[in-house]
Design a protein around this nucleic acid. Structure first.
Lengths: 334, 334
DNA sequence: CTGAAAGCGCTTACAG
DNA sequence: CTGAAAGCGCTTACAG
């Protein structure tokens, strides 16, 4: 590994001059143009690249972002991860990813690990219970941007879909289409984005003059295996008399499609189906499933932009609490 | 941030003793038990965590693995990433991910970036043309394990599915089921795993006494947008008289299903369908699609095990060229 | 059994 | 306009 010292020695100048020039501060520090160009030429010829560990130790900047998601293998999060990667790369940043699996203990360890690694900023889709650890980060002046969900008690930047409005859109369309008994299948996590969807579900029912029947709401245990989930949804559909079903997330919707298929129920004719969050499966399924699509790409881009603002690489955003509009994609399931 | 010096000062001992104890070398360096336990107690009480940048600079070990995939947002790779994350975490490692998008120029930059970041080891699904950059890594004594594909000219550890055998299995089943004109839709990347699939496709045809008709092979341009791919496959199906179609990857298969649906062709009755690599969509589709499933989890686990061997954290593997068996999952499309 | 010192590669305040 | 020196936080060879 060739170092600044090597370049300095080969040119008979001091390492500090080399450092200054390579950091683009030649003008500022009034290094002569001749010396500057000699240094640049030599560094290229010798194939010099800075040792990030040394830079990091010295400056406290690692040029690395920590990305904490629920599960990197999940569609939504891996797509988020890809956009984040592309966006931060434009600022010269790498990203370290971690999956919490919605476990606060694990999330806490991951934050500690990223902290030790000296990551410069954090993009987090927090699990319930990670609040204190995230607060600690903020206390230590680390920039944090939350995605997909947030804590009402923590005044932090966040970016997510407008879950309330998106859910309202979907529900209103169901009501307008004449459905009267809409089932809702969600998970049992007390996360803000899920809660907002549920609130909208209930509000639309109420304002349409329909009753909220708790029996029509199914809360799937998070961490259910596929088979358990599919069976539970089947049982739920069988024992209620709903005429439409709203799946609160795409993975729940995928399980739900399997349940419905197993029950040999005809989608649209026997049961209207709609899902929050799109997925390749939904457009390919027969019939294609109507969804509320989340602006995943925009969530990632916006979160990165805010984070770069906090890191001083971009103008600081004024608005730090962002709800991005969802899109109702009408297909063939209602 | 509290440092080793702070602990040393608070205890009135030297920083070296603290370092030795915290690295578990108390016995080896014959530090007294009393001092050792005092140091451990203090470090916990004060909430000490090592600054990884400093450790990295000093030891040359960053405790970070570089993961280079084709595209982190793709199902196969994000699942790979999740397993890798879990596996390396057990050794105290983090992982930085990058997507090449099958672009060698980008891949080259990413490798340089990871190298500067001082990652300890590399897990790479290489794009065509990354050979020289990977070779440079090896020359610099960096452990590298290739996944999903490899270079025949580079004697490096690799782990992938047994593409040849998997494809044979699928083709033999098609032949046995009586199909005579099997179409093959692949991409135009000259990657080893794709080549092996094509070789097996041709060999089975030949040994079944059937002709290889180049018109029955479609090579989709990598980077095709969804619409282009769907249309191209539709045109291909229309102008050939194939009785079955073998999709060479899951994303091609997903496009293909859409093409077939657009053409209003009946799967199984009019056209047998099989795909290399499974996906949620295939089991949910009507009819469910028969696939050759890759052992993604095992690929990740094995690759990590080999890498940890190279890093000296595990017994070094003897066998460094691993072809893992695929599984034929028979469903309803033939 | 323990401490002082050197050094990993870099940046920056300071001196000239 | 340029260089020598200090120091980021750690580890390790060396001295005692």
């Amino acid at each position: 590994m060739i170092s600044i010292k090597d370049i300095a020695k080969s040119l008979g100048v001091s390492p500090s001059s080399v450092s200054i020039v390579l950091n683009g501060k030649a003008k500022e520090k009034r290094i002569s143009d001749t010396l500057a160009s000699k240094i640049i030429e030599a560094s290229e010829r010798m194939g010099y690249f800075p040792n990030q560990a040394a830079v990091s130790l010295r400056t406290g900047q690692s040029k690395t972002i920590g990305l904490i998601v629920e599960n990197i293998s999940n569609n939504f999060f891996s797509f988020l991860a890809k956009t984040i990667e592309d966006e931060v790369r434009m600022f010269g940043y790498n990203v370290v990813y971690c999956s919490t699996e919605n476990d606060a203990i694990k999330g806490s360890e991951l934050i500690q690990m990223l902290y030790n690694q000296q990551v410069d900023g954090y993009l987090i889709t927090p699990a319930l219970g990670m609040e204190p650890d995230i607060k600690k980060l903020v206390d230590r002046k680390k920039p944090v941007v939350l995605m997909d969900r947030y804590f009402e008690t923590l005044n932090l930047p966040y970016v997510l879909a407008d879950n309330y409005k998106g859910m309202r859109d979907g529900m209103e369309m169901l009501i307008k289409a004449g459905y009267k008994k809409v089932g809702f299948v969600t998970n049992d996590l007390d996360l803000i984005q899920m809660n907002e969807r549920e609130i909208a579900y209930k509000e639309v029912l109420t304002s349409a003059g329909l009753l909220i029947d708790e029996k029509n709401i199914l809360r799937l245990k998070y961490g259910f295996l596929k088979e358990e989930a599919v069976t539970t949804i089947s049982d739920f559909v069988k024992k209620t008399d709903i005429d439409a079903i709203f799946f609160a997330t795409n993975y729940i919707g995928i399980y739900g499609l399997e349940s419905i298929r197993n029950l040999k129920i005809k989608i649209k004719k026997d049961l209207g189906v709609i899902c929050f969050d799109d997925h390749d499966i939904f457009s390919l399924y027969t019939p294609a499933i109507t969804v509320i699509s989340q602006p995943v790409r925009e969530i990632a881009i916006t979160a990165v932009r805010i984070l770069m603002g906090e890191l001083g690489l971009l103008k600081r955003a004024k608005d730090l609490h962002i709800h991005l509009p969802t899109e109702l994609i009408f297909r063939n399931s209602l």
